[in-house]
Design a protein around this nucleic acid. Structure first.
Length: 886
DNA sequence: GCTCTCACG
DNA sequence: ACGTACGTGAGAGCC
């Protein structure tokens, strides 16, 4: 006979965390919740002897319960970092146990368990549900027993329907009504104020359900009657929220729950990493080394050595010469102004640690020499940031040999968690503490005494050391070794140089623009108030919505989750109805310029240099593009003249020099021509045709001179759509035409560019077969949702499959050009400097005597960055500021 | 901290 | 029938 055991993972790990005293392993990782969970699990496995076991987890923050009640679980204390760092550890440990774990986007663990108990009821399988949450009692049945933790996690109370009846006088389903009436503060479910368990039980014994109570309020008296009547809707909503959803799509997955006992060697290895020695003894697991065949991974064991004035210089130097990794702690998001805490260097069983003050003192000289030594190879984590942070402390960093953050990005560019403790968990090497657990975050950020920092840095350096060979192997397996060593890693150094260099921004130009904007804004504001007949905050979408749609009665075009939409698309549709709309649109435009670009940029100008220093992030964008922060210099206005004037403030940093901009013409469509091999499209670029006119000719079936401006505009939108992974819905939306017409355009396009259609079809099939797509340089992006049964998720993945190779290859190409360009400038001893990258554009500052050289060199390098069948084309412009490079 | 809006390619 | 265009970052409002 089968017996299922279904464990509410989130509930139990929370209980365990708060029930157990703090406990850490030697790398500083908190392990108390995992320990508590494990002891409970072992006990239950022993007592229940299940044939199938599952641990269910909540996935993500937003569930279907938030639809219609966004405050669900609002006001909840944030998970403490000491607990959140234990989630990946628990998940890995469960793998060692060979126990199945489910989590599903949009659903909570309860819903998964609720669905499985429904199946158990239908199939007559004996089941035990383990949780700390009383809500689970609603799932109890003939087949299903609920075990609720008591006093922490060491004891459980088991409930079947009879016991629930005995204790509460309710059926399992009435547990839902109980919560509907009394609410639940921890989930922010309101219930009826003033109704607690006692009152709720009394009401239910009399009227059976929430609905019953609400239908019979006439039988209630006084305050109680008032309260219930005033909160009818709350009670009904609370009941809905408390109802566990039992139809989660989990078809045919019950086989995956089969549990055949744990692998002793694997479990022993996990316990050793966590340093659960008592459990190793208790289960009589093999000691390290005696594991049969299984590779024995010891817990982190290394000696931490502080570098100080007593340190023997020659042994320090000898150690550095054979170092295996370095971890440099630059704390803070912006490396141009981060706090340098110190660094750790690891080799074998030893880790040297040095604090920032010592590093900058004479005692730190050997370490500084080593950091600056180009011939001393360094394996590290986010060395791009480290190099930048060190440079602001006048410490040179050279010799990057491998960067585990950069490698992690290439191996999975969509994974946003690139922290070392996460990578350690992912690769199954000794678990370490999270930064958040050591330093806190945001307002709670605090640097602990260096003793603790040193332990943490040592653990991180040791982790880097262990990760390197594993990631190198993975890069090899995924054909990205070359991409890594020949493109991304060299680029990271080029980027650091560009960032440190910065770009000069003329504050006076911005201030003048700012006061001009200020005058206009004041004037528009008063006109808007006149038309509205009242004063309000135009910047508040909420207040603006009330004025437009309630006070002035304009038609509602679109709604957002929280109210009326007032975005530009909506306002444009409202223009004919009221004069105020045009004014608001203009006000919005100017106020964006003022706050983000004038005021925002002014704040970023460094007093000492008069420059702004952006920070390019190389490990963010899923397609392989760079992103830019603090400030973002990749979204400086250009499309509208008003905003474009911001670019007048970007000037050369030396007198008489010039700004030179070079941008790829239609790089994405050229890349599409290349990877699709479409003859018609290739032909168009070989003849350097105006591609939107060419598209218009083919889509509308006319000659070049018959293409008018509107046809070209529509063709341009079709081209954009193609690059984005087209759909008739998207195109119709963009062009404000019917879906049918949009579909006709698309069909016409594919008739003319048959190779493009084949590419789109094939890439989606490839993605489905392989689970990923690649760029020309083998950059990879996984698309697990391409197989989703949910139409939306799947469609999104399909469009991504079409777009990523195009956008990603374009990113590959300009990155190659940047590395080449940097080399050329040095090789030729040119003084010209590369300053910015804006996806398809490079910006330089150039001394006048190098202008002619650069005007030919830059396009030459960019156009030949990657040899294709389709020519690449670069337009070059220059002037006294960025505005003039048009 | 989340939502909305909007700037860029 | 379903219901979105691809990739980013920043400021303001609001809870």
């Amino acid at each position: 006979m089968d017996k299922w055991m279904l464990i509410d993972g989130n509930s139990i790990i929370y209980r365990a965390f708060f029930a157990m005293p703090p406990l850490t392993n030697s790398a500083g990782l908190h392990t108390n919740a995992v320990y508590g969970f494990t002891t409970m699990l072992l006990k239950l496995l022993e007592e229940e002897k299940p044939t199938h076991v599952l641990v269910a987890f909540d996935a993500g923050k937003v569930t279907f319960r938030h639809e219609g009640y966004t405050e669900y679980k609002g006001g909840r204390q944030k998970t403490p970092p000491e607990l959140s760092e234990q989630f990946p550890v628990l998940k890995e440990l469960l793998q060692s146990f060979s126990i199945a774990q489910f989590e599903l986007a949009g659903y909570e663990a309860d819903d998964i368990i609720g669905t499985l108990t429904r199946m158990a009821d239908e199939q007559g399988v004996e089941t035990i549900v383990v949780s700390g949450d009383k809500d689970m009692l609603q799932l109890a049945s003939e087949q299903v027993t609920i075990a609720l933790t008591r006093k922490g996690v060491s004891e459980v109370d088991r409930y079947d329907p009879a016991e629930i009846q005995e204790k509460y006088g309710l059926t399992p389903l009435q547990i839902i009504d109980l919560k509907g009436l009394m609410g639940d503060a921890s989930d922010n479910i309101p219930g009826i104020p003033g109704v607690g368990e006692k009152t709720a039980l009394k009401l239910l014994h009399e009227f059976e359900s929430v609905e019953g109570v609400l239908a019979n309020t006439n039988e209630l008296k006084g305050k109680m009657k008032e309260k219930v009547e005033a909160h009818k809707d709350d009670a009904l909503m609370s009941k809905r929220l408390a109802t566990i959803y039992r139809e989660v799509p989990l078809e045919n997955q019950t086989d995956e729950l089969a549990y055949g006992g744990y692998d002793k060697a694997a479990l022993a290895q996990s316990f050793r990493k966590l340093e659960f020695r008592s459990l190793i003894d208790r289960l009589e697991l093999p000691e390290a080394g005696e594991a049969d065949g299984a590779e024995a991974v010891a817990a982190a064991t290394y000696e931490i050595i502080r570098v100080d004035s007593d340190t023997d210089v020659s042994s320090l130097k000898a150690f550095l010469a054979q170092s295996e990794s370095v971890y440099i702690e630059a704390y803070g998001e912006n490396p141009h102004q981060s706090q340098l805490l110190g660094l750790a260097v690891a080799a074998g069983e030893q880790v040297y640690v040095i604090d920032c003050d010592t590093l900058e003192s004479p005692v730190g000289q050997p370490v500084r020499d080593w950091l600056a030594d180009d011939k001393a190879p360094k394996y590290g984590y986010d060395l791009h940031k480290a190099e930048l942070a060190l440079s602001w402390h006048h410490i040179t960093f050279c010799g990057t040999a491998f960067d585990v953050q950069l490698a992690a990005y290439l191996l999975d560019p969509t994974e946003t968690n690139q922290t070392l403790n996460f990578l350690a968990a992912k690769y199954g090497i000794p678990a370490i503490a999270s930064d958040e657990a050591v330093y806190g975050r945001g307002a709670k950020f605090k640097v602990p005494d260096f003793e603790e920092v040193a332990r943490h840095l040592a653990a991180k350096a040791d982790t880097v050391r262990r990760l390197v060979p594993l990631q190198q192997g993975d890069l090899e397996k995924t054909d990205m070794t070359k991409l890594y060593y020949e493109l991304e890693q060299p680029l990271s150094i080029v980027l650091a140089r560009m960032e440190k260099r910065g770009i000069r921004v003329n504050a006076q130009t911005l201030e003048e623009l700012g006061s001009e904007l200020e005058h206009k804004l004041v004037s528009y504001m008063s006109d808007i108030y006149q038309h509205a007949g009242m004063e309000f905050n135009i910047n508040s979408p909420k207040q603006l919505g009330e004025v437009l749609f309630e006070r002035l009665g304009l038609p509602v075009i679109k709604k957002t989750k929280t109210g009326y939409s007032t975005d530009a698309e909506v306002l444009e549709k409202l223009e004919p109805y009221h004069e105020i709309v045009r004014l608001i649109l203009y006000y919005r435009q100017l106020s964006k310029l003022q706050s983000t670009y004038v005021e925002g940029l002014l704040k970023e100008i460094r007093r000492d240099t008069g420059k702004v220093h952006t920070y390019y992030r190389q490990t963010i964008a899923a397609t392989g593009r760079l992103s830019s922060q603090f400030p973002n210099l990749q979204n400086i206005p250009i499309r509208l003249e008003e905003g474009r004037r911001i670019r007048k403030a970007f000037v050369p940093s030396e007198p008489d020099w010039l700004i030179l901009g070079a941008d790829y013409s239609q790089i994405e469509l050229r890349v599409l021509a290349q990877i699709s091999g479409d003859e018609n499209l290739k032909e168009a670029f070989v003849h350097d045709m105006d591609i939107h006119t060419k598209t218009a000719m083919d889509v509308f079936g006319v000659s070049a001179d018959a293409v008018d401006a509107n046809m070209r505009r529509q063709a341009k939108a079709v081209n954009f759509g193609i690059v984005y992974g087209i759909s008739d819905f998207g195109l119709s939306n963009n062009l404000n035409i019917t879906r049918k017409d949009a579909a006709r355009f698309i069909e016409q396009y594919f008739e003319a560019f048959k190779g493009v259609r084949a590419y789109m079809d094939n890439i989606v099939m490839d993605a489905r077969r392989d689970g990923y797509v690649t760029t020309l340089l083998e950059r990879r992006r996984y698309l697990p949702e391409i197989k989703a049964s949910n139409f939306n998720l799947r469609s999104f993945a399909e469009r991504t499959a079409m777009n990523t190779p195009i956008q990603g290859t374009a990113a590959d190409i300009i990155k190659l050009a940047m590395v080449r360009m940097d080399e050329e400038l040095r090789k030729r001893n040119l003084r010209s400097r590369m300053l910015l990258q804006v996806h398809d554009e490079l910006v330089f500052e150039v001394p006048p005597d190098e202008l002619e050289t650069m005007k030919t060199l830059v396009p030459e390098v960019m156009e030949s960055a990657l040899a294709l069948d389709v020519p690449l084309k670069v337009d070059v412009n220059y002037g006294i500021n960025w505005y003039e490079t048009k």
